[in-house]
Amino acid sequence: NSPLARIINQQARAQTGHGWGSAKSPDCSGLSLQELESLDWERIDLSEWLAILAESGQYPTAANLDIETLTGTGSELNAGARADAAERSVSRAQGLDGGDIVHDAAGTLREQIQADLP
């Protein structure tokens, strides 16, 4: 339903062997999560998409990239009042005890190593 979706769909189908069907029986289905997961994204050429962004003035540059425009209230993706990424990260970390987290992670790692020992 968008140029980006079309570009990815065209190139992904070449990788997955998922065809388009025939004129009498077209296959316009999307890609499954498994197909998306199996893609070699290094082989997906997004140059057409980047050209569209540049032509429309939406191509990101160092001058227009900052945390507010990417994630905060200035973001076009922001559907409502949303704190920027830094504020959300601080909020998520409140009440967490770093020592407990490290201790729990070390215990889990120790258990996994012991389980793999002969």
Rank of each mutant, 00 (worst) to 15 (best):
E35Y: 00
E35L: 00
E35T: 00
E35D: 01
L36N: 02
L36K: 01
L36T: 04
L36V: 01
E37T: 03
E37M: 00
E37N: 05
E37G: 03
E37P: 01
E37W: 03
S38A: 06
S38G: 02
S38R: 01
L39W: 00
L39N: 00
L39D: 00
L39V: 01
D40F: 05
D40K: 03
D40Q: 06
W41K: 02
W41A: 00
E42K: 12
E42W: 09
E42L: 09
R43H: 09
R43C: 11
R43S: 11
D45I: 03
D45W: 04
D45E: 05
D45F: 02
L46F: 02
L46D: 00
L46T: 01
L46Y: 02
L46K: 01
S47E: 04
S47F: 00
S47K: 01
S47T: 03
S47N: 03
E48S: 06
W49L: 05
W49Y: 10
W49I: 05
W49Q: 04
L50S: 08
L50W: 10
A51D: 08
I52Q: 11
L53R: 07
L53H: 06
L53T: 10
A54D: 15
A54C: 13
A54V: 10
E55W: 10
E55G: 13
E55C: 09
E55A: 13
E55I: 13
G57R: 14
G57C: 15
G57M: 12
G57I: 14
G57D: 14
Q58V: 04
Q58Y: 03
Q58P: 02
Q58G: 02
Y59P: 03
Y59R: 09
Y59L: 11
Y59T: 06
P60T: 14
P60C: 12
P60I: 13
P60F: 14
P60H: 14
P60G: 13
P60N: 15
T61Y: 12
T61W: 09
A62G: 04
A62T: 09
A62N: 10
A62D: 10
A63G: 04
A63C: 04
A63N: 07
A63V: 07
N64Y: 09
N64W: 13
L65T: 15
L65N: 13
L65F: 15
D66L: 08
D66S: 08
D66Y: 07
I67H: 12
I67N: 14
E68R: 07
